[in-house]
Each structure stands twice: as C-alpha cells, then as structure tokens.
Design a protein around this nucleic acid. Sequence first.
RNA 1: GCCGGAGUAGCUCAGUUGGUGAGAGCACGCGUCUCAUAAGCGCGGGGUCGGCGGUUCGAAUCCGCCCUCCGGCACCA
Length: 668
Amino acid sequence: MSRFFITTPIYYINAEPHLGHAYTTMVADAVARAHRLMGDDVFFLTGTDEHGQKVERAAQKSGEGTVAFADRTAQKFRDLLPALNISNDDFIRTTEPRHFAASQALWRLVRDRGFIYKDRYQGWYCTVDEVFVPEKQLVEGRCPLCNSVVEKLEEESYFFRMSAFQQTLLAHYRQHPEFVTPDHRRNEMLAFLEAGLDDLSISRTSFTWGIPVPDDPAHVMYVWFDALTNYMTAVGYGSDAPEQQQRFAHYWPADVHLIGKEIVRQHAIYWPAFLLAAGLPLPKRIMSHGWWLMEGAKMSKSKGNVVRPQDYVQHFGLDAVRYFVFREMVFGQDANFADDAILTRYNADLANDFGNLASRATTMIHRSCGGVVPAPDAALLEREPERALRSTLDRVVPAVRALVEEFQLSAALREIWEVVAASNRYIVVREPWKLAKSGSAQELHTALFVAADTLRVIAELLRPFMPDTGERTLAMLGVTPSATAWVDLRAGTLAPGGTLGTTVPLFPRIEHSVEELRLMADDTTQGAVPQTPAPSAPAQAPAHAPAPAQAAIPATTEAPKIAIDDFMKVELRTAKVLTAERVPKSSKLLKLFVDTGIDQRTIVAGIAEAYEPESLVGRTIGIVFNLKPAKLMGIESNGMVLAASAEGQKPILISFGDNPPPPGSRIR
RNA sequence: GCCGGAGUAGCUCAGUUGGUGAGAGCACGCGUCUCAUAAGCGCGGGGUCGGCGGUUCGAAUCCGCCCUCCGGCACCA
C-alpha cells in the first residue's frame, strides 16, 4: 500500500466560490477516491488562503473585523465541500496557529541557510490602486490600470535569493520530465527558467494582515511564501509534537499539487526554490488544468457569466455535474461549459446508456430470478459474446486505473462507457426476455449473471467519479461497497445467491430545456443553498430529484421523524403584508414587504399564480421567520411564506380568519 | 514583439514514429427488438483534414510562407 498525498490550491477568500474552485476540488476528490479504492494511504488536502492586502481592505470595507471577515468568507469555501461530496481529509486555513508556526519555521530555516536578505524594494507605486507597477507595464509614466500618475516609492523588504536556484531547477526539470504536467506548461516554465531568475520580494510593511516575519515583526510575509507553505503545515511541518513530525516524514513530499494553469509558476518555480533553499524534498508532480469557458469566453464577474455550480447541482443532481465536468474537460485544456452540453450528456450518457442499463439488468433478475443473483453455467461463460465482454473488462479496468493516475478523467470515463455500450449490446444479443419464455434456464441464468456482474464492475469503476451513483448501483445489486474495491476488480466476482436491492431510476430523463428548468427552479425553490447529499442512503428516492415537477413536493412521505427540539428550531410567526407586487419576468413570484412585529422585511413567495398582489395587502400570513436569506430572481428574500400546495394545484396561504393575531405571534 | 499551442463531418473532439478507401460521440434519417428511463441495438447521409507552395512512389501526419484563434513572457480555480 503506497502513500498518496494530494492537494488543491488553497482558495483566496476574496472571491466567491465558483465553478473553477469546484472543478479543481472535484478532480482532486475523484483522484483521491480512486487511490483509496486502490488501497493507498491517501491524504487529501484543501483549504483557504486568507492573508494579504486585498483581504485586509475588503474586511475594512465590510465593516467587520478582519478576523470575522475571514471566518465568514472562508466558511463559504468550506460549505462547498459537503455540497460537492468532497472527501478531503483536512481543511487548512492560513490563519490557523499551526500555519503560523510552519511558515515561520520555514522562514527561519531558509534564512539561516543564507537565502533571505534584507534590502530596499523600489518601484513605481500607484496610490489609487495601491500596487507596485513593474516598470515595463507603465504607460507613459502612468498606471496601466487607472491611468493615474505613479510615484517612485521605496520600501524595506526581505528578498529570497531565488536567482541561486536556476541551475538546480533546470537540472531537476531535466531529470524529472513528469514534474510539470501538461508538457506545454512545462515548456513555459523551462523558458522562464532559462531566461534567468530574479530574487523575489517576500515581505511587506505596507499592511499587517499576514504572518509576522520572525525577529522582525514590522514585516509580514508576502503572500506566496506563506500560502505555499500550507501544503507542509497540514502534514505536521513546524510542529514540536513528535507525532506531527512523524506525520511530516511520512507524507512529505506531496505526490501531486493539483492547480489551475494561472498559478503554475508559483508552484513549479517559486515553491521548489523555497524548498531547495530549505533543503526539503520537492513535490513529485505539479498538475495543472485548464479553465472553464462560458460560450468560449473566460468567466468573470464583470461579464456576469460566472457559473455557480449549485445551480446545476439543483437542476441535474450532483453526480451528473461531476460526470459532466470530468467527461467534458480534457485535462490541461480549456473547456466549454454550455447548458445544452450538460443536458445532452445527462440524457444520452447517464439516462439512456447507463441509468437504463442498470434498470434493465436488475429488473430482469427481479422478474425472472426472484431478485436473486443467478449462478452462471461455466461452459456457457466460454462462448463468444461472454468472452468478448470479459476481455473488454480485462482491458478497461487497468486502463481506467492508469488514466485516473494521470488525471485523464475524461478518457477514463470514455473507457467506462465502452463497457456500458458493450453491456447494452450483450443484452441485445442474448435477449434474456426470450430465454425467460422459451430458452434453457442455464442460458437465462448465465446471461443475467453476466449482465449483473458487468454492471457491478461498472458501478465500482464509477465510484470515484460519482460516489453516490456508484454506491446506489451497488445497492441495487445487493453488493456492499468495499473500501478497496479496485485492488482486485475483475469480471466474474459477483456472488450468485445474493439478494438484489430495489431497482430505482438513477438518472430520470430530463425532457425540459435548461432554460425551462432554470425558471422552474427560480420560482419554486426557496433556498439557493445547495443540498447536502445524503451519503450512502441506498434505498431512498433520488436524493437530488432532477425532475423539476417534484421540486415543490417531496417525492415520498418517508421523511424521518424529528424531535420537538428540531421543530422548535424553526420560528414560525405571523406577519402582516404591507405591500405586494409581481416580480418582473416571473410567472410565479410575488415580492412581499411584511411587518413581522419585530422588523419589516422583504419576502419573495411563489404564489403569483394563485393571488393578486392587491388582495394580499393588509392580510395576516404565516411565515418562516428565521430562514437564511436567499436570492430569487435577484431579490433577497428573508423568510418564506407558509402555503399548502397540493400536487398540480395552486398554493393556498395559511389563513387566520377575520380576527387575526398580531404580527410576530409564534405559530406552533 | 518573442516563445508555444490549436485550426479534421452541423456540434465537441480522436488521429503515436508519413502508407490498407479519413474516425468517435452527439445531432439528423431509416430499420429493428420490447427486458428497460419512448431507453437499447443495427444501418446511413455528410468532411477540398485553415490557405498556398514544397519534399516524397505516397502527407491530416514532414518543410516553408500566409490567415485565424488561444496561451506564456505580466494579477486571478
């Protein structure tokens, strides 16, 4: 069993989490899960980068303390993890004490070995943007960003003697061609190295939100020195505790730093230079992926085309989104995120090919074999379609393993779908429904066994990519998931005599366009907060209910019983409607302004089809008082109106009669 | 500007060291089964392989020039 330490970048908390962050984290998750299934001792790290002037300023602007701001914004990234079913082993924040200790330890080490010196940092400073502008970028002596006049400024700074490592790094690149992937990024880094390295300014005195430089607290470490060190902090670097030192010895160096292409240099040059200076081992691989483009354009806030993964998770379910991003992006290249592409992938690959296969294979065993895995006939297994299918598996399983190790998730899924297609073809050739009527029992049992056995291998192969789907498919087959299922994964290992679970539709076809789905979701869901997927709950209805008609009404009534305490967490109160108006471009939403007795607030409610706005003014309604705010059609809604909605019917508000209680009365 | 990628069917892309008549998926058309989520399976149409020129018995694949797009040299998954 080998050790596998994989990291994502730590995400800078100055931005909102978006598809880019989600993608990096999901890729790392899939690879980490695959290594666990292969029996490796995996450590999977992600976290947040919280220091620097940008954060300090954003915190000032927000009026919170810097610490409170960092806590709140870091939490947004942390919240993304369960929503994406991420199996990280640790979540590191650069503001944690352990990270201060590690960063300062690394600094001291590098300093004591003679690679840090103090000098003056001199440059052109733009007082408007508050940044140093490199001389080359000046436009006629003015700031290229805001066109204001820059001034020459000097600041005392510590410098890292990066220039000392050019030759060592070049040698390392030559000895380890796999160090930077993909190749064209490696070539870029080689070009950068050959051009020569400048020493790097690694401290600042112009702000204080950072890790103090040891023995000179007027300086804080400049962002990358502190940030990159996180990879060692999390495995125990800088700690005095013996068990932490052992952990560090065990897990360092990292096997993979997974990053986006925009931070290759920091990881492929700065970071190894720091480590060389400290005399510490270098990470084995820097793997960099491309960007997600929207309609061919880079995502950016100003273009308003930032993809929020939660929206798609809501429409298609988490596993479908994971499948899409893995399948669609060739590692290292940019890829397009298009609504119709994800819908096509969903219906063609997940619903038609795989979901339907799982459904037909298990249903036939329920019908013809009483839901028990039949025993195959050894001689019949040696006939042609069976042998061919088996050899497909023999080829695909190791291929998938190898591809995942190289982060070729798209190709790996393509291989798995070869098996899906082969399995569908096998069923057509053997026609078990005919065998059930007139064929021999041995032939029927063999065909159904092979179908189920193949499905089981597919389910195991899918687990890193779509953990929930893999386990639900195994549950349909009555197979208990094993933590190391990939160690000896092959055809013919499904145990005859096992009892199948219930067949459930894994990916119901979606007949609506994405635009329709989006409108429905906007009108019917009250929270933009992504659903936390129920981990391994095999027998339940689809956790993510992609069918939009079900969005307003739970598909089943099998909700577990709750205690009175749980109920009392929900503050139901009366409120009086002050104003009501239609939300433009929405067929179902009304914007209400209500008096809750405690405050006055806006609530958006999906009742426009049932009530005229005017009829509501002055009326007393029931609301959920302490619901998290959510944005619906761009309007922040603070609470939720209580109304009964029978399936297919318009909602009816809870009524308090002619003599209603005062606003703010608790409902229980 | 310098360096590096990419331009192949309507769409997204495979095509190692030049050589059986240029491929896959999706979409589209036709056929077919009925176990299955109106899913599956089979067949089919469609491409001057960015342009021009060259090397060669033979080039999408090598060379030169040109056009277009993208990236690195300068922040951001």
